[in-house]
Amino acid sequence: MVDNRYATALVIGTVLSLLATVYLSVAVGTQQWYQYRSPPMKREASNLTGLIDEFSNGEIDEKTYSDIMYRQNGTLGLWWRCILVPSQYHWYKVPELKLETRCVSFTLPQQFALKYKHPGNPSSEEDLLRTYLWRSQFLLPLVSLALVFLSGLVGVCACLCRSFTPTIGVGVLHLLAGLASLGSVCCFLAGMDLLHQHFMPPDGVEGSMGWSLYLALISFPLQMMAATLFLWAAKSHRKSYTRMTAYRVA
């Protein structure tokens, strides 16, 4: 028999865990982790066409696509890089003012590619710190989601076995998942700061955090609160069960 307080804690913890999972999943799949605001620039349609074609090339180096993002109101995500371009542009006329988003995904080899002290220059010194920060920022959210999924399996097993003990494992897994989510945000921000130190945006270009990053950041306290509720319910129920057993024996 489970006390109503513990059952309520489990329900609230489950809801918080589901919210955190949805927020983190949306954050991983969207490209609004970091965004640039560029001043309006007049550019010929032929030059703009070449710029977009160059940006769409999946083999361009970090310096090239970063420079285009600086100038074209770019946004960056864990798996995407995007720029704003005119919805219709031709070589024989000036581009229209209506803009649309053009996105290109990072390939898996690009996610594991080495970073350099001078972005885009393979002959320069390797920047191992930025390399591992970049790799961690997209691996840690996947680790977090995997831990939450594993905790869900443990919870289902606990229900089937009618045991409260595995709830401790659910709480620990959520605790680790929350730390992984926070680590991803920290790695991303640290990596962006180092990139801007080595390759500064032009004057007039402003960078700011996007809503996708805030979603990932919100998932951290939700996962921690869920972990706290699961651990409290398991620990308190265990103490209550022990006292009840001792009372019956006496």
Rank of each mutant, 00 (worst) to 15 (best):
V2P: 00
V2C: 11
Y6N: 13
A7Q: 15
A7I: 11
T8E: 14
L16C: 06
T21V: 02
V22Q: 05
L24G: 02
L24A: 08
V28T: 04
V28L: 12
Q32F: 09
W33R: 06
Y34L: 08
Y36R: 12
S38C: 07
P40I: 07
R43Q: 10
A45L: 00
L48P: 14
L48T: 04
G50W: 11
G50D: 12
F55R: 15
S56F: 04
N57V: 09
G58T: 14
I60E: 07
D61T: 07
E62H: 06
E62W: 02
E62V: 01
T64M: 13
T64K: 15
T64A: 15
T64E: 13
S66H: 15
M69Q: 00
Y70K: 05
Q72R: 05
N73A: 10
L76C: 03
L76Y: 11
W79V: 05
C82E: 11
V85S: 15
V85W: 15
W91V: 15
V94W: 00
E96Y: 08
L97F: 09
K98G: 11
T101Y: 10
R102Q: 14
S105L: 13
F106T: 06
T107F: 13
L108A: 03
Q111G: 05
A113P: 13
K115Q: 11
H118N: 04
N121F: 13
P122C: 06
S124G: 07
S124T: 15
E125N: 12
E126V: 14
L128S: 09
T131D: 14
T131F: 14
T131C: 12
L133K: 07
W134P: 14
S136I: 10
F138M: 06
P141N: 04
L142T: 00
V143N: 10
V143H: 06
S144M: 07
V148C: 09
F149N: 10
L150S: 15
L153F: 01
G155F: 02
V156T: 03
A158Q: 05
L160Q: 05
C161V: 02
S163M: 06
S163E: 05
S163D: 10
P166K: 08
G169Q: 14
G169P: 11
V170N: 09
V172H: 08
V172C: 07
L173S: 14
G178L: 05
A180T: 00
G183L: 03
G183V: 01
G183C: 02
V185S: 06
C186I: 09
C187F: 04
L189S: 03
A190S: 07
A190N: 10
D193Q: 12
L194I: 10
L195W: 04
L195M: 14
H196D: 11
H198A: 15
F199L: 14
F199Q: 11
M200G: 08
E206P: 01
M209K: 06
W211E: 01
L213D: 03
Y214G: 03
A216H: 03
L217K: 00
I218T: 02
I218Q: 04
F220N: 01
Q223Y: 06
Q223D: 00
M224T: 05
A226L: 00
A227N: 06
L229P: 10
W232P: 10
A234H: 03
H237I: 01
H237G: 07
K239V: 06
K239H: 08
K239L: 10
K239Q: 11
K239E: 13
Y241A: 06
R243V: 03
M244C: 05
A246E: 01
Y247L: 09
V249W: 08
